[in-house]
């Protein structure tokens, strides 16, 4: 944890160099993959001579103020509203990422419910429509493998923001948002079904897509695709996840 915190701290030197451009995209996000070689294929010899390359792939890191556009307004309002509730914004909002014209608030999971309620009810924020949960499994992001991603839309102010919450694989618990956004009922069941992320406080967290007696959570990265090889006239074409890959 501490190492990543170091990385995610505001870096005055870098920020100065960037001259605090609006919407500055941080470069030091979580490492999600280490790529070896040039082309991703790892079977067969090193025919290209690039096999020794090692490169880590990182997600966009925390942005620094100003975020640009209405992002600052939303961030200010949210921080102000959280302070009013005696909640330190730094504790609730782990970091803020601005990337590709979208703002993402990484929320500490224990404060998710409070933050979501604030976002919905505060007149200056008013994110009244939640477009559901999307789970993402980052096996390489140690200690925060499972991410739940929420997109909140404000029809009043015509804005869209993203909330991201993470949970480790060995404690896959995230508070449920059904009490704030009832629409998340099925979305959370779907994310549970596919990723095994347990939404505490959900009224009936059961499988929704897979049969009730299904083993495992099929869209996690450690769950195989489950395809079978296609056999025809002596030839065998392996399932897509068994083939030589280039990524």
């Amino acid at each position: 944890m501490s190492e990543r915190d170091e990385q995610n701290k505001p870096n005055p030197e870098q920020d100065l160099n960037a001259q605090n451009l609006p919407g500055q995209r941080g470069e030091q996000g979580e490492e999600i993959r280490v790529q070896r070689g040039m082309f991703g294929a790892n079977n067969g010899g090193d025919t290209t001579g690039y096999g020794g390359l090692v490169r880590s792939v990182r997600l966009p890191g925390a942005a620094s103020r100003p975020y640009g556009g209405w992002f600052d307004e939303v961030a200010d309002e949210l921080e102000g509203a959280l302070e009013e509730q005696d909640l330190l914004p730094e504790n609730a909002i782990e970091k803020t990422v601005v990337d590709r014209g979208e703002i993402t608030f990484h929320i500490a999971r224990e404060h998710l419910l409070r933050v979501a309620r604030t976002l919905r009810d505060d007149p200056a924020l008013r994110f009244e429509l939640c477009t559901g949960v999307s789970g993402v499994h980052y096996p390489a992001d140690k200690g925060r493998e499972l991410h739940a991603v929420y997109h909140l839309r404000s029809i009043t102010h015509n804005r869209l923001i993203r909330l991201e919450v993470s949970a480790p694989d060995d404690d896959p618990h995230v508070p449920s948002l059904v009490s704030v956004y009832p629409t998340n009922d099925w979305h959370e069941r779907e994310t549970y079904d596919f990723f095994g992320l347990i939404f505490d406080g959900h009224p009936a967290l059961t499988r929704i897509m897979m049969p009730d007696d299904w083993q495992g959570f099929p869209q996690r990265k450690d769950y195989p695709l489950g395809g079978i090889a296609v056999e025809y006239k002596g030839a065998q074409i392996p399932a897509p996840d068994q083939r030589r890959s280039y990524s």
Binding site: Q35, S134, V136, S247
Partner: peptide
């Protein structure tokens, strides 16, 4: 909702389908 890990394939694609909601 599309996530990339810098590769030639999507890392994760999730569709928020209106029928579902």
């Amino acid at each position: 909702h599309v996530v990339s890990d810098g590769g030639t394939r999507p890392f994760r694609v999730h569709f928020r389908d209106p029928s579902f909601t």
